[in-house]
């Protein structure tokens, strides 16, 4: 089995976000980057599939030089080799999906795993767009996956429950928490990862349609009123909810 996992390199969620002077990006100083948390589920699933069926797991990331750290993390978990598709500056998800699709096609990967969303721009676009470009089946927000021969049975989270989806290979799956429990890279894996190859090429991006006009901080909400410290505040709270907020 030839499996591809697409990973993104994102600011740690606990990072304090400051907007850069040009209002197009975040201030990079002091920001630590991590492997997108959902992509850990994607990698784990790929490794499990490989352990069961054999094959190769290739990790693809589009970004700058520093994205290699994230590729290394995936290699340390057990992926076989990496590909860095070099990009510069802001790229929208569909043009990025085009570049990922090109690479996936040239690898001939029949199973593609991604995360349900990148926690930087929170788009949830790339997996579906790449599947569409490739003409592959697609199951997003996946919490359970069974692949038997070319048959794929997956469960995805929806409002109020789960859908059981049937499709067949080739397929793009976007992983949600719950799909599995990602392993931690062992020391041995970390050492081996240093010797695993990472190919570098320019990303064959598609047309960019999105213009980022401005990045800004949400207007600071006036801190709420603390009405009291025990149940004696309850009648006042209920009055405010009825008369001021008018929500009950």
């Amino acid at each position: 089995m030839n499996i591809a996992v697409c990973v993104s390199h994102v600011p740690d969620t606990t990072t304090k976000i400051r907007i850069a002077a040009d209002k197009q990006n975040i201030e990079q100083q002091g920001v630590s980057y991590i492997l997108n948390p959902y992509d850990e589920f994607a990698i784990e699933e790929a490794l499990k599939l490989k352990e069961k069926n054999g094959g190769e797991v290739v990790v693809i990331s589009a970004g700058g030089e520093t994205s290699k750290e994230t590729i290394r993390k995936a290699l340390a978990m057990g992926a076989d080799r990496g590909v860095l598709l070099k990009t510069n500056g802001f790229v929208d998800s569909i043009s990025l999906a085009k570049a990922l699709a090109e690479e996936i096609k040239s690898n001939g990967s029949e199973i593609v795993l991604m995360g349900k969303q990148s926690i930087d721009y929170d788009n949830s676009i790339t997996a579906q767009a790449a599947a569409e470009i490739l003409g592959y089946g697609c199951v997003t927000v996946c919490v359970d996956l069974k692949i038997d021969g070319t048959k794929v049975i997956a469960e995805r989270e929806i409002e109020g429950g789960r859908e059981v989806v049937e499709t067949s290979l080739p397929v793009v799956i976007s992983a949600q928490k719950g799909l599995n429990n990602p392993r931690y890279p062992a020391i041995k894996g970390i050492m081996e990862a240093k010797r695993k190859p990472i190919a570098e090429k320019d990303a064959a991006l598609g047309k960019v349609h999105t213009v980022l006009s401005e990045l800004k901080l949400p207007s600071a909400k006036n801190p709420g009123r603390i009405i009291g410290t025990d149940s004696s505040a309850v009648p006042e709270l209920v009055r405010l909810l009825r008369e001021e907020a008018k929500v009950i």
Partner: peptide, 10 residues
């Protein structure tokens, strides 16, 4: 974006 820590105008 960024978990609601910023807003993006596009």
């Amino acid at each position: 974006v960024f978990a609601g820590k910023a807003l993006q105008e596009v």
